[in-house]
Simulated assay, not measured.
Amino acid sequence: MLPYLLMIMVVIFYAGNILVGEALNDLPPLTIAFARLAVAFLCLAPLAARTAWRSRALFLHEWKPLLLLTLTGVAFFNTFIYAALQFTSSTNVSVLETLIPALTLALSALVLRERLRILQWSGLALSILGALWVITDGQIFAVTQLQWNIGDGIMLGAVASWAVYSIAVTRYLSLFPTFGVLLVMTGLAAMILAPLVALEWMVLGPPAFSPTEHLPGLLYLGVFPGLLALLFYNRAVQQLGAARASSFLNFLPVATMAGAVLWLDAELTPAKVTGALVVVLGVSITTRAGRRPSPRPSPAPGSAHPSSPNETLRN
């Protein structure tokens, strides 16, 4: 039950990520992404600095998977989203985000050799249909009439980044200490983005920052989608697998709709409620049809089980 609750919280935080990211689009995208990372890093440092320092040899030894996790899940996924929102609408972003579970499911079969059932694909297709029903308010064929632009192409980069990140979490994240790796990934991502932010400011000029207007949104992005959502998603993927966990992301349009109804006075229509129920049904089918990863067999009594250097460092 816990991983499902974690994924529901992830969806809520990421729905806020879209709404707040769109509200902050008067700031340039790399600046938003960098500020978000700075907030998350400052929150993590008191909790994880000691663990990260003790595990420094592990991080250096496993630098390749660490870099893959950092680039796909921390540095560029949200940068792509904020850049896309400069050109396209949150509706288009929500439509394209429905591709993430399908791509993750395909990569799970291809890379992780996960055995996927027809029922899983059917549940995923149903949840995508429900998500599109919510987005279009029941006018499903209106998707073909959306105005697509360069922002939608940028959003495809976010879709690919998160699908690859989900697979990398399944394969590599267990190598690292939970909080220590988040601190290192966040700091490394900030270092990667820093020169790009400087270039952005050289081209566009320094942004006009208003503490009262921008700071609350940046704090939200750093603490909730930047830190807690990443922590919860990592834990859920390790327990459910990438394919099953990512299927919950089709709740994003539902959560975004709920946020718009609660805070932006958007209209709640029967079609949107119907679409939300279809998403629930589709995700339920996908998660119930999937298999849990087989637990690692325990060593026989009396058998030798020397710890690897990585295990020693994690402890």
Results as ranks from 00 to 15, higher is better:
168 A>W: 12
120 Q>I: 06
168 A>C: 13
161 S>D: 07
135 I>K: 04
149 N>K: 03
170 T>I: 05
166 S>K: 07
123 G>K: 06
149 N>A: 12
132 L>D: 00
115 R>K: 15
148 W>C: 06
134 V>L: 10
137 D>G: 14
114 E>M: 08
151 G>N: 05
133 W>H: 00
109 A>Y: 06
119 L>K: 11
163 A>T: 13
159 V>T: 07
118 I>A: 11
123 G>P: 01
115 R>A: 15
122 S>A: 09
155 M>R: 15
154 I>N: 08
126 L>A: 06
132 L>Q: 00
116 L>A: 10
123 G>L: 01
134 V>W: 03
132 L>C: 05
170 T>Q: 13
124 L>Y: 01
144 T>W: 14
117 R>P: 00
110 L>R: 07
153 G>E: 02
157 G>Y: 11
117 R>C: 05
119 L>N: 09
126 L>Q: 00
150 I>A: 11
147 Q>D: 15
153 G>K: 03
165 Y>I: 00
133 W>E: 01
131 A>C: 03
128 I>L: 01
160 A>R: 12
150 I>K: 10
148 W>N: 06
148 W>H: 14
130 G>A: 04
109 A>L: 12
140 I>R: 13
125 A>S: 04
149 N>T: 10
152 D>G: 12
169 V>I: 15
145 Q>A: 14
161 S>G: 13
116 L>W: 06
152 D>K: 14
130 G>P: 01
143 V>T: 15
170 T>D: 10
124 L>F: 04
168 A>T: 03
130 G>S: 09
166 S>V: 05
145 Q>L: 15
112 L>T: 02
118 I>P: 01
125 A>G: 04
128 I>A: 02
160 A>C: 15
110 L>F: 13
124 L>S: 05
123 G>V: 05
166 S>M: 08
169 V>W: 08
162 W>S: 05
130 G>T: 06
113 R>M: 14
156 L>H: 08
